[in-house]
Computed example of a mutant assay.
Amino acid sequence: MKAIWNNQVLASSNKTEVVEGNHYFPPAALDMQFFKSSDKHTVCSWKGTASYYDVTVGDHVNEDAAWFYPDPKSAASNITGYVAFWKGVQVVAD
């Protein structure tokens, strides 16, 4: 799977975890030059507290376009630190 935004591959992995229809990429699959920590946090009743990244490609910023669970509840332990995307980021089969 690949995550693409603004014609740039942000992440690529053969081993994503699918939860609620979202592909979560392992941390090592991300090209971190495109990611900056965001102040946004949300809470899921069964996964826990999510943190977010802003995605920047060139002069374009996609705020809070990626999220992850740094310390999820036990039911979601398989996605600890894994990153998922939304807000126009395309996740496609490699």
Rank of each mutant, 00 (worst) to 15 (best):
Y82P: 07
S77L: 04
N62C: 10
K2C: 12
D71C: 05
M32L: 08
G21T: 02
H60N: 06
K87E: 09
D31Q: 13
N78T: 13
G88I: 03
K47R: 02
K40N: 04
K40I: 00
A66F: 05
S51R: 13
F85Y: 03
H23N: 12
W67M: 03
V89E: 04
V19A: 01
Q8I: 06
S37R: 09
Q8M: 12
K2E: 14
V43W: 04
K73P: 00
T16E: 07
L10K: 11
V83R: 10
P26A: 06
A93S: 10
V91M: 09
A76K: 02
S13C: 05
D59E: 14
D64F: 00
P70Y: 04
F68N: 02
V43H: 15
K36D: 04
S51Q: 14
V19W: 11
N22Q: 12
S74T: 08
L10H: 08
H23P: 01
Y24I: 07
A11I: 12
D71S: 09
V91N: 07
M32G: 01
S38D: 03
A76R: 03
H23A: 15
G48I: 09
G48Y: 01
P26L: 02
K87L: 02
N6I: 02
E20D: 13
F68W: 07
F25N: 05
K73A: 08
S12F: 00
A11P: 13
M32V: 05
V92K: 06
M32E: 09
D64T: 03
S45R: 10
K36N: 09
H23R: 14
G81N: 01
N22A: 13
A29R: 11
K15E: 10
A3Y: 03
T42S: 12
S12Q: 13
K47G: 01
Q90T: 12
D54K: 12
H60T: 13
G81F: 00
D64E: 13
V19P: 08
K40P: 00
V18T: 12
H60E: 03
E20I: 05
G88S: 01
G88H: 07
D94L: 11
K40V: 00
S74A: 10
M32F: 10
T49K: 13
A75P: 02
K47P: 07
Y24F: 15
L30S: 04
Q33V: 12
K15I: 01
P70S: 08
K36Y: 07
A29I: 11
A29S: 15
A84T: 06
V55R: 11
V83P: 07
A11L: 03
F34M: 08
Y52L: 00
I79L: 04
K73D: 06
Q33R: 15
A75C: 02
S45Y: 08
K15F: 06
K47F: 00
A3L: 10
K47Y: 01
S51F: 00
V43I: 13
G88E: 09
V91I: 01
V43P: 05
Y52W: 01
V19F: 08
E63A: 15
N6Q: 11
D94F: 09
K2T: 09
V9L: 14
G58P: 07
E17Y: 05
Y53K: 11
N78K: 15
F25G: 05
D54G: 05
F34P: 11
I4Q: 15
V92Q: 12
S74Y: 07
D94E: 14
L10E: 05
